[in-house]
């Protein structure tokens, strides 16, 4: 797997409107960088092409705008994340139910982790 700044720049060139500067992508918060890197990794693995990604992302942005998204540019990575969740399900990598189960498990992990300790997922975090 070659995840490097050059691959990142190609992604930014292939996908419209990614927040960027002259060198490549810029992020407002760490989770945005994670969401970006996950898409890059899935693309490298051949899960989707940038064309497919662009279509999925555009559909998510249209859907959000129809639902009243203010479209100030600050919500770009929220749409990016929604598109990731959708394409991962559509490509048969992980169904929406599985994603929801893991999200709930992380919430459980978060709630049992004392403030100041790193949060780690354990089998016991998955409910029945």
């Amino acid at each position: 797997m070659t995840l490097d700044p050059q691959a990142a720049r190609q992604a930014v060139d292939a996908v419209p409107d990614v927040p960027r500067d002259a060198d490549g992508p810029v992020f407002r918060e760490p989770w945005e960088a994670h969401a970006f890197a996950i898409a890059l990794a899935l693309h490298e693995r051949g899960v989707f092409t940038w064309e497919e990604w662009t279509q999925t992302l555009a559909a998510e942005i249209r859907r959000a705008q129809a639902a009243g998204d203010p479209d100030t540019g600050t919500t770009y990575y929220r749409h990016w994340l929604a598109a990731l969740e959708r394409i991962v399900a559509e490509k048969g990598v992980a169904a929406a139910e599985m994603q929801a189960r893991y999200r709930d498990a992380w919430e459980h992990a978060c709630e049992r982790t004392p403030h100041g300790k790193p949060i780690e997922l354990r089998p016991g975090d998955f409910g029945n």
Binding site: M1, W31, H34, L42, R45, L81, M98, E107, I119
Partner: peptide, 30 residues
């Protein structure tokens, strides 16, 4: 008294852990 993650952070972590378990992403490479 306990840790905090936003709804968005929970979803990103969920995706990352699923994709790691299934071998689609390598967290170290990320």
């Amino acid at each position: 008294d306990h840790s905090e993650l936003s709804e968005t952070e929970l979803r990103v972590r969920a995706l990352e852990s699923i994709l790691t378990e299934k071998g689609y992403v390598d967290p170290a490479a990320l």
